[in-house]
């Protein structure tokens, strides 16, 4: 018993040490990092809990039209983008994309990032025959590629075109973002980073470019930056008519 608590303690110490290093690194960059860092490190052996629900608020009024920092950051972090030399443009994977929308009546145009909206009641999960699509306790919707049979029904069901099918053999994947031929994939909300107490790569990149259009955090925590921002000003979920209660929300449309 005491043995095990000692081990657990060691685990926590280890994490605190790592968190300290991360904080040190962050302090070099603009101070925003520290204030946006929403999560405390969870011990590695502790499962995710439903006491949290991760989400992102996209403030489209701050999203610069010629900027694609979030998209490149995601490509670098997760290794997609230039990994499929044989696939056509229509066949290449997109975890996050920059979408330009123009109001038909007024002609006013703006851009915004689109990715998996991490729905609370995800259609992709409902239709998946094997249960490979699933929603983690903390609200992140993932594909378990070990049991995905590549039927693409989830892609048919997703209202946001958030998912991609890998059309060819891949090489040199990132260890923290396994992906491969014949399976479906989508934004993971950088679960590997979030599990370490870090924020998703896109959010970090947006802040690093001083746009601050993306706020990441725990929707269930009243005091998190994202909850406060959502409470303070209007925002919408896309395709609200479907009632999916998305984890990603948009301001300014």
């Amino acid at each position: 018993m005491s043995e095990s608590s000692k081990l657990a303690d060691a685990a926590r110490r280890n994490f605190l040490a790592k968190a300290g290093v991360a904080a040190g690194a962050a302090a070099v960059a603009p101070g925003v990092f520290l204030s946006t860092s929403p999560a405390q490190a969870r011990p590695a052996d502790e499962p995710v809990s439903s006491a949290k629900r991760w989400g992102i608020l996209v403030d489209t009024t701050k999203c610069a039209s010629d900027c694609s920092a979030c998209v490149s950051a995601c490509e670098n972090e997760n290794g997609w983008g230039s990994s499929e030399p044989n696939s056509s443009a229509e066949q290449k994977a997109h975890w996050i994309r920059s979408v330009t929308i123009k109001n038909k009546a007024t002609g006013f145009a703006k851009t915004l990032p689109m990715m998996c909206q991490h729905c609370e009641t995800p259609p992709c999960v409902d239709v998946c025959p094997t249960g490979a699509s699933f929603r983690r306790a903390d609200g992140i919707v993932l594909v378990d590629k070990h049991i995905c049979i590549g039927c693409r029904y989830c892609m048919m069901a997703c209202p946001y075109k958030a998912r991609s099918f890998v059309h060819e053999d891949l090489h040199d994947q990132k260890p923290w973002a396994p992906r491969g031929k014949g399976t479906v994939e989508s934004c993971t909300l950088c679960d590997h980073r979030v599990d370490k107490g870090e924020i998703p790569a896109c959010v970090e990149a947006c802040s690093a470019d001083n746009h601050n259009a993306l706020i990441f955090g725990d929707l269930y925590d009243e005091n998190s930056e994202i909850s406060k921002a959502l409470k303070a000003k209007d925002s919408v979920e896309l395709r609200a008519d479907l009632g999916l209660n998305t984890g990603v929300r948009y301001r300014g449309i």
Partner: peptide
């Protein structure tokens, strides 16, 4: 035509009973 026809056994052993597709199998 599946991305992973080799995983037919997975399709037969993992069921998501909410999925109309699984019901169809």
């Amino acid at each position: 035509d599946l991305g992973h026809p080799d995983r037919l056994i997975v399709a037969m052993t993992y069921y998501n009973f909410k999925s109309i597709f699984a019901w169809n199998i």
